[in-house]
Each structure stands twice: as C-alpha cells, then as structure tokens.
C-alpha cells in the first residue's frame, strides 16, 4: 500500500469527536436555555467535565472568584467562553501523544496550538473588531494533521529536510513531494471525518497557503495563517520544520496591516499566554 493510502486509512482509527460542543452550541442558540440543561450535557462527557473547571478558573477566562461546579462554570463563563473551554477540553485529548516526528516533547504541539488559538483572537479583534469562537476552534485544530503525519515525517525526515535545505522549498511542499500529502491537507480531512463545518475544514487545509483557496472572501484561513506564522516566529512550538514556511506577501495589503500591528499582537499574546497556563497544562 502507498504511504498516502496508509495515512488516509489511519484517519478512521481516530476516535469520533465529542459532540458536546455542538450540543451545547445548539442549546445556547435558544433564548431561554436553562443552565441545568447545559450543565447536564457537559456532565455526560467525563473527559470534558474533568477539565472544564480547571480551565474555567484560568485567568484567561477571568473569573472573579473560584468556580467549583459545572453549573457555576456555565453561568460565569458566559456563552462565548463556555464554548471555547469545551472545545479546548475536547480537542486536548487528541494531542496527548503529541506529534513526535515533528517535536522533541509530547506537549509541544499542544502548546503551539493553544498559542495559535489565542493569537487568532487577537488578530481577529484587530481585523474585524471582534473575537470569533469558530475561528478559535479552527486555530486550535490547525495542525491536527501532525498527530498522524508525525510518524511518517520521522521516517522520511532526512529526505524532507534535504529538500528544504537544498531546493529552497517549504517544509509543506517537501512533505507533499516525499510523503504524497501535507499536514494541512491531512488535517482538513481529519476535521471532515469529525464533521466540522466547511469553514473550519478550509481554515485547516489552507492554513499555510490561504492564497490558494478560491473563496477569496473567507478570512478565517488568513487569520489562522497569520496567527500560526507569528507563533512559529516567536518559537512557540518550534519543531523539525522550524520556520521553513513560505511567506504569503499579499497578507499585509489585504488586511491593511502594518508590521507594527503584528509586533503589537505579539506583545498582547505574551500577556494572554501568561494568563492561560491552565489551558496548556490540561494535557
């Protein structure tokens, strides 16, 4: 069997994505949702329940006093933060083993993913004037392809790194040449298997090359792209791929951003990260 076929086949071995997030999102759309109803959906999922209190008490989500029950968490987090906390808890369990072909430590991929998710909200605030929970989920999942690609990248690392070093091509293109698929495209397929909406799938699949997505008006892949590049530059989750990704130059003009805006986002991110230790420590 060709490597690509083996990789695509192994998607089916990943456990289904917890439906808790979608169920809660649906409940929250009703103007008269009850806290008990929402809390009961969360309690049905033990792995999420275990982490949600820890995250609810994180300075990033900013509670003024200690939150000690799921019902309290639902009330105090509010809709936006509740969904983020649920998605963070749900996604974290797939990252427990990390992506060792790319990274030295098992926690590196998760740390990078949380940093990109936080940065996506800072960039979104700058570009659109508001934060966005769907974008947060997409950013948290952008490198999910690496959890499967890791072992294949490890086996072919000499070839991939050789291409990057001698041919001046990006790590992403080298993955595709050597393995037959890149981690972004594979991540999109995993998100599709988990039945995430198209905008999340696109944001994952095109997070290194948002310029290749035909739906030009979609900004989610661009924001994930900017957030990811910024975190890569800052060294949050630097792996064997390092900074070997191609700059997409038109991003500056497209969103009327200045270099200074990106630098300021980095300053804001370092504040957010220091308040988000609990998010990082849940795996």
């Amino acid at each position: 069997m060709k490597i690509v076929e083996r990789i695509l086949k192994s998607i089916n071995t990943i456990p289904a994505f917890p439906a808790t997030g979608n169920k809660v999102a649906q409940l929250l759309t009703k103007p008269d949702y009850s806290v008990n109803e929402v809390a009961n959906v969360i309690k049905f999922d033990p792995s999420i329940t275990a982490n949600i209190l820890k995250m609810a008490n994180s300075a990033y989500f900013g509670p003024r006093h200690k939150i000690s029950s799921i019902n309290d968490a639902v009330v105090y987090l509010g809709q936006k933060n509740l969904l983020r906390a649920i998605q963070t808890a749900g996604i974290s369990k797939y990252y427990k083993k990390g992506a060792l072909g790319y990274f030295d430590k098992v926690t590196d991929l998760w740390e990078h993913s949380v940093a990109v998710a936080l940065m996506s909200q800072i960039i979104s605030q700058k570009i659109t004037g508001q934060e966005n929970t769907t974008l947060y989920t997409a950013a948290l999942l952008h490198d999910v392809g690496k959890i499967i690609m890791g072992e294949f990248v490890r086996d072919s690392l000499a070839k991939i790194s050789g291409l990057v070093a001698t041919q001046n091509i990006s790590f992403l293109d080298a993955e595709e040449i050597v393995i037959g698929i890149n981690h972004a495209e594979l991540g999109g397929k995993i998100a599709a298997y988990w039945k995430f909406p198209a905008e999340i799938i696109d944001a994952i699949s095109f997070h290194h090359r948002p310029d290749l997505l035909e739906k030009e008006e979609k900004i989610m892949p661009w924001i994930v792209y900017i957030a990811d590049q910024a975190c890569i530059m800052l060294g949050f989750g630097g792996g064997v791929d390092g900074l070997s990704y191609r700059a997409v130059g038109q991003v500056l003009k497209k969103f009327n951003l200045r270099m200074k805006d990106l630098e300021m986002s980095m300053v804001l991110l370092s504040d957010d990260l220091s308040r988000a230790k609990e998010l990082i420590s849940i795996i």
Binding site: N168, M233, G242, L243, Y245, A247, G249, M259
Partner: peptide, 16 residues
Amino acid sequence: GASILDDTNFFRIGQK
C-alpha cells in the same frame, strides 16, 4: 533572528 522563507515586507521580525 531566524525568518520564514521568502521574507517579504511583512514577516521581517528576525531581520529587524
């Protein structure tokens, strides 16, 4: 002071 590839006008923080 590393940079991403084809450092254009936007991501030049390493160079700066």
